[in-house]
Amino acid sequence: MKPFQFISATNPGDAVARLTKNPEAAFLGGGTNLLDLMKEHVSLPNEIIDIGNLSLKEIKATATGFHLGALAKNTETANHPLIRKHLPLLSKAILAGASAQIRNMATNGGNLLQRTRCSYFYDISMPCNKRVPGSGCAALEGFNRMHAIFGWSEQCVAVYPSDMAIALSALNATVKVKTSVAERLIPFKDFHLLPGNHPEKDNSLAHGELITGIEIPNNSLAAHSAYVKVRDRNSYAFALVSVAAGLSLNGNLIQSAHLAMGGVAHKPWRALQAEDFLKGKPATIANFTKAAELEMASAKALPNNRFKIEMGRKTLINALQLAFKG
């Protein structure tokens, strides 16, 4: 690791002020992603501001839904009685990720900001636009089995690896951010970015901004939700494809479908076309299939990941079925 100053922030204001002052500083949440990247010399902060002691750890019900503190651990969040009862989709998605040890360390804020697992991004001897803008994308014509089928650009074909965020996307969450002057709320769909011409930017957070929490509106999906994750081994592996599905049902009729996909794009991929199609239709296999096909029609595969289109279709159908069964 490159040498860095280590400072423990005393309160959110202090943390934001310190980060704002130094363009090369970084917050340290659980450290499970940042330390990994620092050891690989992908991230090179010269100052680490430990935010682990800030009191942004509360998980609670609010007037309109639920609040997750940015520094609450993934484990606590997944196991909080409120979350298990009302947002089981979120619990399940968190528990699908990483390992027990990592979830014990990982914070909710850090999880949202984890960077891609593209192996060229991690290998500093390789060209990578995300790591070194303008150096090229080694994955575009390289080993891109794990990479995107939606929304990629010639500049970057990486996928965003979080499981938790896929559920949060389906649940219409909002990210609460503290800047040096105010607080702002970022709807989930605007939080993560597609690569476009600036793959170095994963999300719409500006340097100096601190995630303080995540807000999730009330919903009626608890009884009919599912998280399906397809991966190369049965546990402790990132998704090839994952789907978070929640159905709001009136008898057999779908009032609204909430569908987001992981492992397929540079951000949680909200399957809006499928959702639109399903709205108001009966929950049948035929409709699930049609919806999945509609969604996957716009997918564009890379040389090594053509399979993800069929895998995505099947997984969407499967997740819808499981959600329907409850």
Binding site: Y122, D123, E141, G142, N234, A237
Partner: peptide, 24 residues
């Protein structure tokens, strides 16, 4: 997996090289 353009391993860490886990 080797990337023949460079001769490096595109699977380069224990997260890319999948040894079976307990659940497998």
């Amino acid at each position: 997996v080797i990337d023949p353009r460079y001769g490096n391993f595109a699977t380069r860490s224990f997260a890319d090289y999948h040894v079976p886990t307990n659940l497998d």
